[in-house]
């Protein structure tokens, strides 16, 4: 590996991280405004035009708050856990391709940080690590409600992790690769259905997997209606009850960054990512990811929370069998396609 490419990768990663942080900040504003409209309210509109400066005000407020550590907390872990959550959240974005490559300052620059042949699994692995921030935070708080929230979260994330992973297997079978770049390239072909020529987006050939992925992703990011770990009404905000100030904001940040990363991944895996006419790929990717983000907010504004047993039952008794069926069907179709059947 030559040093130049390494430095470019690092630079690109740095830029990406900052963009993500900015996006995240405005995601909070977007969500608050949108939910307000859903609920026939106005939402934050005092700070700056349309309340656009509200995220900055929030950040200033959170950072300047007192950092409280409970007396019977496991101090070290209590301090580290939110950082863990926050650091792991954007890592998934590293494998998202934002385009093929561009030439900048006479240099060929790939519009993705890394292209590894296990990219999709890497995304899942980072996601599975994310649970530590929650479970350790809940444990370290020395608070029963927090512990319960953490335990719930553990069970939930492990269950839905499985569905998330299995829902992608169909795509792996169709592309023969786990690399997101390869998956993206596979979607740039055309899919001929009867007389209709459609882009080969996997939402068309893997509709069941798409639905499963969507549901599992919402659960994986602990968002409504699967936000049981932080259910205010039963657990007084679950694992981050005891957190305050900027440590609280780390969890907050992590949740929104997770949403954005999952949306990017979903857009890449199922909606053809950067594929689209007229405009640069990156705008298309942004537009597609935005659809998912809107969907997230819409869900939150609309659906009530699941009961816990319903949540686990849904994962193991409905989604998992469906995912297995999808894998089996895809495998059969694939074998039929290459003439092995």
């Amino acid at each position: 590996m030559d040093w130049e490419a390494l430095i470019i990768s690092y630079l690109f990663g740095f830029v990406l991280l900052n963009v993500l942080l900015l996006l995240m900040a405005y995601m909070t504003w977007f969500e608050r405004r949108l939910v307000a409209f859903f609920q026939d309210r106005i939402g934050p509109n005092r700070t700056g035009p349309f309340g656009l400066l509200q995220p900055i005000a929030d950040a200033v407020k959170l950072i300047s708050k007192e950092d409280i550590v409970p007396a019977n907390a496991d101090r070290l872990i209590f301090l580290v856990a939110p950082l863990l959550s926050f650091v792991l959240a954007p890592l998934g974005a590293l494998v998202v391709p934002f385009g093929e490559s561009i030439t900048l300052f006479g240099r060929q620059i790939n519009l993705y940080v890394i292209d590894i042949n296990v990219a999709a699994l890497y995304f899942l692995a980072v996601g599975s690590m994310g649970v530590y921030g929650i479970i350790l935070g809940g444990y370290a708080s020395g608070n029963r409600y927090s512990l319960l929230g953490a335990l719930r979260s553990t069970a939930q994330v492990i269950s839905y992790e499985l569905v998330l992973g299995l829902s992608l297997v169909g795509i792996f079978i169709l592309t023969g690769s786990l690399s997101l770049v390869e998956i993206l390239r596979a979607q740039q072909r055309t899919l001929v259905l009867g007389g209709l020529e459609l882009p080969n987006w996997f939402i068309l050939s893997q509709p069941l997997a798409f639905v499963l992925f969507l549901i599992a992703a919402v659960a994986e990011t602990n968002r409504a209606p699967f936000d049981l770990p932080e259910a205010e009404t039963e657990l007084i905000a679950g694992y981050f009850t005891e957190y305050s100030g900027f440590r609280f904001s780390f969890y907050f940040l992590a949740e929104y960054i997770n949403m954005i990363v999952v949306s990017l991944i979903a857009a890449t895996l199922f909606l053809g990512g950067i594929d689209g006419p007229f405009a640069d790929g990156i705008w298309w990717l942004a537009a597609k990811a935005f659809i998912f983000l809107f969907f997230y907010v819409w869900l939150r504004a609309t659906l009530p929370r699941f009961r816990y047993d319903q949540l686990m039952g849904l994962a193991w008794k409905v989604l998992l069998p469906l995912a297995l069926i999808n894998i089996g069907m895809t495998g059969l179709v694939r074998l039929w396609g290459i003439g092995a059947l």
């Binding site: 692995a125 599975s128 649970v131 479970i135 553990t154 992973g165």
Partner: peptide, 23 residues
């Protein structure tokens, strides 16, 4: 592949379960 499997299986599942039981 083993690196990813290690993370998903060991850290993502087994140790999480250990923590679960610990709690």
């Amino acid at each position: 592949f083993l690196a990813v499997a290690q993370i998903i299986v060991y850290t993502g599942a087994i140790i999480v379960l250990v923590l679960f039981v610990l709690m």
